[in-house]
Amino acid sequence: MNLEDRILTALEEVLDPEVGVNIVDLGLVYEVSADENGKVKIEMTLTIPECPLADEIVEQVKKTVSQLPGVKEVDVRLVWEPRWTPARMNDRAREEIRARMSAVE
Rank of each mutant, 00 (worst) to 15 (best):
A54H: 02
D35N: 15
V61Y: 00
T45D: 03
D25G: 06
V21I: 12
D25A: 09
P69I: 10
N37T: 11
D35W: 04
M89T: 07
T47Q: 02
K41V: 05
I42A: 00
V79L: 00
P49W: 03
D25V: 10
E105C: 04
E81L: 07
E96R: 13
L15Y: 11
L68M: 08
I48C: 11
V40P: 03
M101Q: 15
P69E: 15
Y30G: 04
V19C: 06
L15T: 06
S33H: 07
I42N: 00
E12A: 12
E56H: 07
D5N: 10
L28S: 01
V58D: 00
K39F: 10
W80G: 01
E81W: 10
V104G: 07
S102D: 14
V76G: 04
I48M: 14
E50A: 14
E105I: 12
L53T: 08
A34W: 01
N22L: 10
K39S: 12
I7F: 08
Q67V: 07
V40A: 06
L53W: 01
W84I: 02
R100H: 08
N2Q: 11
L78A: 03
K39Y: 10
V71G: 07
E96K: 14
A54R: 07
V19Q: 09
L26G: 07
V40D: 03
V71N: 06
K41R: 13
Q67H: 12
Y30R: 14
E50Y: 11
L46C: 01
K39R: 15
D35V: 05
K63D: 12
G38C: 05
E18L: 09
E81K: 03
P52L: 11
Y30L: 02
L78P: 01
V21A: 05
R83T: 15
E56A: 13
L11D: 02
G70V: 08
M89D: 06
A103H: 13
A103W: 06
R88G: 00
R98K: 13
L53C: 07
L3G: 03
G27Y: 01
Y30T: 04
S33L: 05
E4W: 12
V61F: 02
E4V: 14
A103K: 15
I48K: 11
E96S: 11
D5L: 11
L11G: 01
K41T: 11
L26V: 04
V65H: 05
C51R: 01
A99I: 06
L15C: 10
Y30S: 03
E59Q: 12
R6E: 09
R83D: 10
A10K: 11
I7H: 06
L53Y: 09
K72W: 01
I48D: 02
R98G: 06
L8W: 08
G27V: 13
P49F: 04
V32Y: 05
V29T: 03
C51M: 09
C51Q: 03
D35G: 09
R94Y: 09
M101T: 09
K62W: 03
I7T: 08
T47K: 00
P52V: 13
M101E: 15
L3P: 02
Q60A: 13
A103Y: 09
T85Q: 02
L11I: 04
I42L: 08
E59P: 00
V104T: 09
V29N: 08
M89L: 08
S33C: 04
V79Q: 00
N2F: 02
